[in-house]
Computed example of a mutant assay.
Amino acid sequence: MKKEQKIKVGISLGDLNGIGPEVVLKTFAEAMMLDFCTPVIIGSVKVLNQIRKELDVELSLHGIDAFAKALEGKVNVLNIWKENISVEPGVETAEAGKYALESFLTGVDALKNEEIDALVTAPINKANIQTEAFKFPGHTDYLAQELTGDAMMLMVSESLKVGLLTDHVAVKEISGKITPELITKKIETLYVTLQRDFGIGKPKIALLGINPHVGDNGVIGDEDDKVLIPTLEKIRATGKVVYGPYAADSFFGSGNYKNFDAVLAAYHDQGLIPFKTLAFGKGVNYTAGLNKIRTSPDHGTGYDIAGKGDADHSSFREAVFTAVNIYKHRSEYDVLTENVLKVSPRKPGGRGRSRNEGGRKYDKNS
């Protein structure tokens, strides 16, 4: 019987002067990680060995010059930089932004060309990564342009999933961007993601209101009454289990989020503040809705602790596990769906239920 090939996970290093390289090295210094995937870190063996020695991380790195040469059981490093690079922990530099961008773009190209199965991105600095050719507020927006599908920022932890109607949008622009079309599209994306990527057969979703107290019957604002509520009624008529809108100020504190498979927040801070309060250090940022898989940790560059060896790599490790989990769930779902269509060609709407319908997390100890 042919041995099953391990999932190949590309790793972009993020800002070299931040904690990205540290959390990457610490993650793969754990020998068990190689039981679940074949990592390919995109950068430079020379630079990583320099950082590794300064942080006193015991790890053997295997240099390669092509993704196809990655070996199972090794921490592979795709060498894309030949020049000497000055690493200055905690300092924002144009040079660090340049190499962070090169690592990320190489990873995205590899995803598109199916040279890797998933991409996990270490944190970037959104300011120093900007160029004439790259003018995006973050990873997600670029991925949305380069890949197929409707991208959604989805924060994921063991007990909580929070998606966003709007993400990197100025507060003054939020209400104008939330339309019936956007709500419908985002709920559809989230619904399919929960089924296909997390193995949840009949997702139950909660939507948070736009205004405080869901507008208090129009006293504080009428967007919830005029936009959210009528749209949700139409969506529920299609059979989807979607409730709301809920007042955001009490939704998480009351524990109501535990009654749902996922929560859809109206804007960035409404969703990410409670998520990071409840799951910081264990959470993962997943770009849902695309034809390829990308995850990242739930933190930033961490300039204040860079180079000190104090960075917690738990979130990055979870980002790797989440990418592996999603790849496995998605592959199973697609095979089962294809088989259903073959058996019942006249019923293309038939459900392909994953045998992992309960949303079981991939067992790290198996």
Rank of each mutant, 00 (worst) to 15 (best):
T179V: 13
E83N: 10
A306Y: 15
D15F: 12
D35S: 04
H213V: 14
V335T: 12
A100N: 14
D65H: 15
Q195A: 11
G349T: 05
G201E: 07
V77G: 01
W81C: 03
L208R: 12
Y191F: 09
D141L: 00
K342W: 13
T231E: 10
G289N: 05
G289M: 03
P345F: 00
N49V: 10
S12N: 09
N76W: 01
I124L: 03
G138E: 05
L160P: 11
R355W: 08
D261F: 09
E4L: 06
N356Y: 04
N365R: 08
G90V: 03
V9N: 14
F67P: 01
Y191W: 09
A66H: 08
Y303R: 03
D310A: 10
I64C: 04
F321A: 06
T238I: 00
K98H: 13
T193Q: 08
G18F: 00
L165S: 14
R346W: 01
L61I: 15
D310I: 09
K185H: 09
H62D: 07
L101T: 11
Y246S: 06
D222L: 03
D224T: 15
D334I: 07
T140K: 04
S331G: 06
N211V: 06
T148P: 02
I326V: 15
G43C: 00
V162G: 03
K328G: 01
R196V: 14
K172G: 05
P137S: 11
D334L: 12
T27I: 04
L111N: 14
A279Y: 12
E173C: 07
E181G: 04
G255D: 00
A323W: 01
N365C: 07
I210C: 15
L232E: 07
I129W: 01
N84I: 06
A262N: 02
E223I: 12
T131Y: 03
V91R: 12
A127D: 02
F134E: 10
A306K: 15
Y142P: 00
S314D: 12
T238R: 00
G253H: 05
F134C: 05
A94R: 07
K258W: 07
K46D: 06
